[in-house]
Simulated scan of single mutants.
Amino acid sequence: MAARLLAYEVADLCLGKPPLRSLSSSATVADALAALKSTDDDHFISVWNCDHNHSLKARNLQECVCVGKVCMVDIICYLCREDNLISPAVALKSPVSVLLSTVKGLVKHVEPSSSLLEAIDLILEGAQNLVVPIKSYSKRKQLLQKSVPSTIHNGREFCWLTQEDVIRFLLSSIGLFSPIPTLSIDTLGIITNEFFAVDYYSPALSAIDVISRSLLDQTSVAVIDENGILIGEISPFTLVCCDETASAAITTLSAGDLMAYLDYGGPPEEIVRVIQSRLKERNLEWMMEEFATIDQYSTTNSSSSDEELTSPTTPLSMMGRYSRSSSNSARMVRRPEAMVCHPGSSLVAVMVQAIAHRVNYLWVIEDDCSVTGIVTFANMLQVFREILESMI
């Protein structure tokens, strides 16, 4: 029965998880940018507030706490603010704290002995990442990691668990929940009718607030026409694979053109020309020169190859370049179009589809492609939480 899952602890879900790369809360936005470009392992980097001034004996976990996380979307949205568009280089000198959400509880420390049920409860209460202590790497491996952000805090390493990790774990035991997983998401009542959407022809810059909010909610922004038909999406899960130059695209393009820009493989040349032309019209053409300087700084402070360091970079060739190789980035297995399902889709089918495409949600559409809602991992976890509770 599903009740046997109650015996599992958080530690069971941490097996094989890599240690968290971290950044000090005293770092700058530029430091965060360089750190995000340094490896292909993860699109997020944890931010820590640590006090290492006390003696080793006095140190404890409370003195070294993960206070949040940042990704490239945070930086892009930050650079899109009107006052930061004037000088991106100056904006990047700001403390990394300007990127952290003011919403409390997005990141929670938990012990390895915490139960699966406790982990699910924390996620349903709003936690996006659970920070869990793990067995430290050997000293030799730690030495090999000197070129990347630190993973050590008071002699300990940590990993974090996400909604996706928990959903994957539950899917591995999906038969224990029969027949619930075969029911439709409509029957289960887990379709959320409130979602973020923008018109296809609206300026992409007008969507910057909902892009930030969708990142916070781990969802996406639907791009629709005047009839409510789903044309595509502006997804943080795709935007996270871009570099800082995407802020120039958001500033100048329509929502529809931004979708083309975000298409994997990089934007079409005509889109790049449109961006440069509109930057010039707004007297912002020098933005790309600043981005070239920023990119040189970030690359110099990352683990890029010597060939990359010595290759000339122009604003035109840099535009739209992803900060990670598409062959190494797990997120890049996604197709560019929005992932959809129907009200009659079964819970297990939706779980499999979302996990396969590395997203935390699916758009729910009718036969005419009009959007009726969205179904998220949080919605799914609520179903499993109720089943597990009934087994107590």
Rank of each mutant, 00 (worst) to 15 (best):
E337V: 04
I45K: 05
R140E: 07
A27M: 09
S173W: 06
N84G: 00
I86L: 13
Q353S: 13
A3K: 12
R156C: 15
R282K: 12
G320L: 04
G68L: 06
N227K: 13
L15V: 15
R358M: 11
A354M: 15
I387C: 14
I191Y: 10
K280I: 05
L122D: 11
S325M: 08
M259D: 01
K135L: 12
P312S: 04
Q353I: 04
S173E: 08
T151P: 00
N379R: 14
S298A: 14
E226K: 15
R278V: 08
I271T: 09
I234Q: 01
A349L: 13
S305I: 00
E281P: 02
G189M: 10
K146M: 14
F196M: 11
T251H: 09
L36S: 06
D51W: 03
T28D: 05
F291V: 03
S302Q: 03
N379H: 15
I392P: 08
D42M: 01
M288Q: 12
S311R: 12
L56Q: 15
S113P: 09
E337R: 10
M1E: 13
V274N: 12
K108N: 09
C80H: 01
I234R: 01
V47S: 03
F291S: 02
L161K: 05
N283H: 07
R273C: 07
